[in-house]
Amino acid sequence: MISNSSHPVTTQAALTAEDVNVYYGSNLAVRNVFLEIPKNRVVAFIGPSGCGKSTILRCFNRMNDLIPGARVEGKITFKGQNLYAKGIDPVETRRYIGMVFQKPNPFPKTIYENIAFGARINGYQGNMDELVERSLRGAALWDEVKDKLKGSGLALSGGQQQRLCIARAIAVEPEVILMDEPCSALDPISTLRVEELIHELKQQYTIVIVTHNMQQASRVSDLTAFYNAEATETGNKIGYLVEYDQTQTIFHNPTEKATQEYVSGRFG
């Protein structure tokens, strides 16, 4: 059994995971994850397929609740509250912990309505036009779309769509943004723009990003968590957190051999 190296905390934690286990049906998918996400930092989750990094990411905003049969054990703390305590409304947590998905998924609505939707359902009372502009500027998309706010969000290019989804996420003023391989469907130039955007967003938000691209992890993140998977006798894969430290350390001087092998491209 490999121990988790704990990371020295310098700033306040935005999210903490304590002994999180996730089950799909009766299968354990990820086990014993301890993790602390510091405020205003970018944390990257890396690891081979099936290691549970996306599963853990989806625990933070209770998106796993939507998967039939998924069950989360353990404790995830956000603002002093255990998100999995009784009486916590997952809908409420998702307003504070936003999410950007693997494939851009703008709603089949106008660009304006894509942004305004989240604000409306959360009872935003302020000026909607201002919020839409602020959010689009925040996602570095305003200049490209300001003349076609009434046009369909689906008419944009893939990279623009993904920035629209980021704009949509920040429009509800979350504290944390979870990104599940946000660039995997984008071309290199669009990827670069999203990465630049992540750097800017860090000033205001805490970001957790799952990525298969190790260069991306080393470019955008302050901290990196490396997950790995082990196969059980029945052939199921159980993911676990191998090592979590400063990105520099993970990539250049990791403690665990598996991490060393993964970041140097020897497997995964």
């Binding site: 998106m63 939507l66 809908v91 998702r94 936003g98 998924n105 703008p106 709603f107 359902i121």
Partner: peptide, 18 residues
């Protein structure tokens, strides 16, 4: 209707009805 669209709405804090 793709699952990803529903996920997008849920992730913004929409209820099932919304």
């Amino acid at each position: 209707v793709p699952r990803s669209l529903r996920d997008g709405a849920y992730a913004l804090g929409a209820t099932k009805r919304e």
